[in-house]
Amino acid sequence: MSSPSDGIAARVRALAEFLVENDLQSVSIERSDESFEVARVPAAPAVPIAVVGPAAVRVDQIVADRVGIFHLTRPVPFAGEVLDGDRELAYVEQLGIRNPIRNRGAGRVTAILQRDGDVVDYGRALFEIERS
């Protein structure tokens, strides 16, 4: 597959993490110590904006089954990210217990529907994952 290079992916991930850590919601992030290219990365993960891909074969919604506070897991997933293995994308913190949210198989993250720190309830859609 001719996907973006690993370097760009890492930078996008870094930006995503930066946004999450600083609880920023705007996509118009400017950092003097980063190049313009990074600041203008189109997949700026200003959740919950979805990046719509080509005609989806099937889009799965990953939903919460516990009520609690939503946290993105590091490395923070971003819209457009291609996931091959199974990994923890986020967790719902409930009474001090971490309830992991996993992507359940390969696919591309097309939407991150909740912000870090949001209260999520039972059945709440958290991620959309396009399966190929």
Binding site: R66, V67, G68, I69, Q94, L95, V119, Y122, R124
Partner: peptide, 25 residues
């Protein structure tokens, strides 16, 4: 906030979900 599916044992009796809702809000 939704705390579970229809059967009460999994919703209106789900202590962890109910207490968590109260704390989170």
């Amino acid at each position: 906030y939704c705390v579970g599916p229809g059967p009460a044992a999994r919703s209106y009796l789900d202590v962890a979900n109910i207490v968590s809702t109260a704390l989170a809000t």
